[in-house]
């Protein structure tokens, strides 16, 4: 049996080359969409049923006055307790499944979802990941490349990453790797953090405040209550269970 998997995405090593975004399209044979230049490198502008992985670009001026340019290879976090599944189980049963081996959160392409159900599913995702094709009534997002992973291969995005910004492996190893790297990075970047590592299987390391990368990089609520805190509250009772899930 394949041990439960996780990703570690170390954005301090990401150079924005978009190898992952391209490899994701290639492996999933997702079509290109017609885009135009809109005053930024990021393109297509957002995730879609044809784009499961998107490098988000964000630039500005840092506290030292130097420019900063952040790259955020966005994708489904494969939550340990996926809220989308919670919503789906009520609104569109069977459309969201958990893969038994990897614990990947999968949107079953065989199951049709109503626009209303999708609205609820998307609304509950703290990371704004679910996308919907109105024509076919299907939802789509990152599949963790379960087809590859169950054959012992790396997900396409991880395999193609040149710099080691993306890692994939057994959850225990990945969590340890993430914590160790955080300690290293913190020595230089005091604001560095891991985004809810206990709640998700795709653990991002950010060197700066999450909102500098992208609105949904972490789990910031409009009222100032962080989703991170909320998720922590949510998941705290299950710390032991999480270890069991692996």
């Amino acid at each position: 049996m394949i041990a439960r998997k996780s990703f570690f995405i170390d954005t301090t090593k990401c150079t924005g080359c978009r190898g992952c975004q391209a490899a994701c399209k290639q492996w999933n044979q997702n079509p290109a969409t017609k885009t135009r230049q809109q005053g930024m490198y990021q393109n297509p502008p957002d995730l879609s049923t044809a784009t499961f992985k998107l490098v988000r670009f964000s630039s500005g001026t840092g506290p030292s006055g130097d420019p900063e340019w952040y790259f955020f290879p966005d994708q489904c976090r494969h939550c340990i307790y996926p809220p989308c599944k919670m919503a789906a189980d009520e609104k569109a049963p069977g459309s969201v499944i958990l893969d038994v081996q990897t614990r990947a959160v999968i949107y079953d392409p065989a199951v049709k979802v109503s626009p209303e159900a999708f609205k609820a599913i998307r609304a509950i995702c703290p990371f704004d990941i679910p996308r919907y094709d109105e024509k076919s009534g299907r939802m789509a997002k990152c599949t963790m490349c379960v087809d590859r992973v169950s054959e012992g291969m790396l997900p396409a995005c991880v395999k193609t990453c040149p710099t080691g910004a993306m890692q994939f492996g057994d959850r225990g190893t990945i969590r340890k790797m993430a914590e160790e790297r955080l300690d290293e990075v913190r020595k230089i970047y005091g604001r560095a953090s891991l985004v809810v590592p206990e709640a998700v299987r795709v653990i991002f390391l950010l060197k700066d405040y999450p909102e500098k990368y992208y609105e949904y990089a972490a789990t910031e609520d409009v009222r100032g209550i962080t989703r991170k805190t909320a998720l922590k509250q949510l998941l705290h009772p299950f710390a032991a269970v999480e270890e069991w899930i692996g």
Partner: peptide, 8 residues
């Protein structure tokens, strides 16, 4: 198409 999509 996959490359043009990213830098059109």
């Amino acid at each position: 198409p996959w490359l043009l999509e990213m830098q059109p």
